[in-house]
Write a protein that binds this DNA or RNA. Structure first.
Lengths: 136, 136
DNA sequence: CTTTTTGCAAACCCTTTGCAAGACA
DNA sequence: TGTCTTGCAAAGGGTTTGCAAAAAG
């Protein structure tokens, strides 16, 4: 049962491509809703989830925060700035073999892993430096 | 300002040790509340959070689910069964150097990472096999 | 015409918060 | 005593759901 090709689906997929930097479902909703006020929040959440399940888009699960969506689908990891919440791609080589190691260690059949880095983004590092300079 | 040594704090810490397998804050609350009905949910959440911040216990952030707490404090990763929600320890070597690689690749100052495996636990694998056998 | 999707609002889960009363040091 | 912690209930963020109306195939 392939998904039906509804207007909303198109609108939402397009909006995601337009919005860079891993928007949350709610950010996508705001963008979509601004242009097409009749589109409801539930539709955006449902559609993004479905697109992600189909593999058409990526879903980035954030510890302690809203899921984010990504029009890019190739595998890569993410960093999150603990100060401003910004999320960026991290181009480190994908961990290969680690799933097998985990399977061997746990007895689970491993289907995948998710890895998230936490840190301070360049902009917040700069801001920090300014704070220190002005405080000192 | 060291934390005060309150009765509730003791009760909650003890309950966590008793409860194996990474209980959620709410599971700790249920256990504590059953024995000590006067202890409120907010106290359990607050106290677990504080204990985790102090490093006295571990906090396991689960994608898309409630945080879990762990009376063990040594660093290790976790697997989550996508069928039953069970969370287990995975004894694979901690990833060393990966934070530096991520820092170099992203420009962030990396403070750490979190890695979660997803899969099917041994019990659910067995259940699956039975299902297939009876369906076929 | 049948089945899937939509839109709305309400429900849901997990967690945090404001505040007055109570416990610690 | 002065300050931290508690308990309560309400609020909060993020997401899902029930249902009738609308749209896709």
């Amino acid at each position: 049962m392939p998904a039906r090709n509804t207007v909303q689906r198109q609108i939402i997929a397009d909006a995601l491509c337009q919005l860079a930097n891993h928007p949350t479902a709610d950010e996508v909703y705001e963008a979509v809703h601004a242009e097409h006020p009749s589109v409801g929040r539930a539709t955006v959440y449902r559609t993004l989830g479905r697109l992600a399940d189909e593999g058409a888009i990526g879903r980035v699960r954030i510890n302690n925060g809203a899921d984010r969506f990504d029009h890019q689908t190739f595998a890569h990891y993410h960093v999150r700035c603990v100060r401003c919440g910004r999320v960026d791609d991290v181009m480190v080589a994908e961990l290969r073999g680690i799933d097998d190691a985990a399977a061997a260690a746990s007895g689970y059949r491993i289907s995948g892993h998710s890895l998230q880095f936490d840190g301070i983004c360049p902009a917040c590092q700069a801001a920090e430096k300014n704070d220190e300079a002005s405080t000192a």
